[in-house]
Design a protein around this nucleic acid. Sequence first.
DNA 1: TATGCATTTCATAATAATTTGAAATAGATG
DNA 2: CATCTATTTCAAATTATTATGAAATGCATA
Lengths: 133, 133
Amino acid sequence: MTDTPLPIHRDFEREEFEVRCEIPETIRSDLMQIGGIPGLKTLLPSAGRIEELSSTHHALSDPVRVTILYLLSVQPLCVCVIRECIGISGSKLSYHLNIMKENGLIVSEQQGNWIIYRLTDKGKVFAEELARM
Amino acid sequence: MTDTPLPIHRDFEREEFEVRCEIPETIRSDLMQIGGIPGLKTLLPSAGRIEELSSTHHALSDPVRVTILYLLSVQPLCVCVIRECIGISGSKLSYHLNIMKENGLIVSEQQGNWIIYRLTDKGKVFAEELARM
DNA sequence: TATGCATTTCATAATAATTTGAAATAGATG
DNA sequence: CATCTATTTCAAATTATTATGAAATGCATA
């Protein structure tokens, strides 16, 4: 693990770079080319976008919700069929459906006595990810 | 919201379909073509795969971790630079890095006094998702 | 309007994730 | 070997998420 020489630079301690620690040379040289820490920060998505992304991932961070995603990728389904496939209580299912809905992965439509859920375009994008990983 | 007639079928109460509730006709007809509830279930990924997917999404369900993903999509970085960009304590950062590592989104490599993190191929796939949504 | 069914809502209990700060580890240097 | 720096580990406190079951809602039908 200790196979590289370790030239140390304190350039990053200068206030223009806002860094209070030393940095290994391999990292430092690349970082300089994009404007140091400040330059790196400008390449990040906005705070709002990052919140949105993490929230969306949270909506898929539970096995029940991932299962719902794949069930609905087959066809739109009413709550009772989803419930039957997964084998959980109605209130529990409702809780999970709501999280997915709030995050724009699914939408619901009342049809008579039933409520039918289907994937949104965003939901479909995530359902297709199975192939990519 | 109440715009469709509601023909009710109890076919799904027959044990071969394992359903104990009524189902709206629009859903029922499509469902029959894939073999009812049992057929639908066979189209799901395995339980292990679903666990894996939800775990991966969990690893991206926090703003700190999403930020790390995007920082590392620019270039490999040592912990101290990541820390400087995000502005959190070392132990907290370590906690989040570990979750991402356990889920195969990043790998670390010791270089002298520092530990350098970089995205795995899997991590890169998720970093690219920004463009898709 | 009374009833039945599908679904949601709500309060609460149970569980899990995150934060915190102190202590430990690991490598480099004097 | 003593010390410094970077990073991780650990236990405890805090906070967030999920599960549960009872009650409420909404639609349909008699």
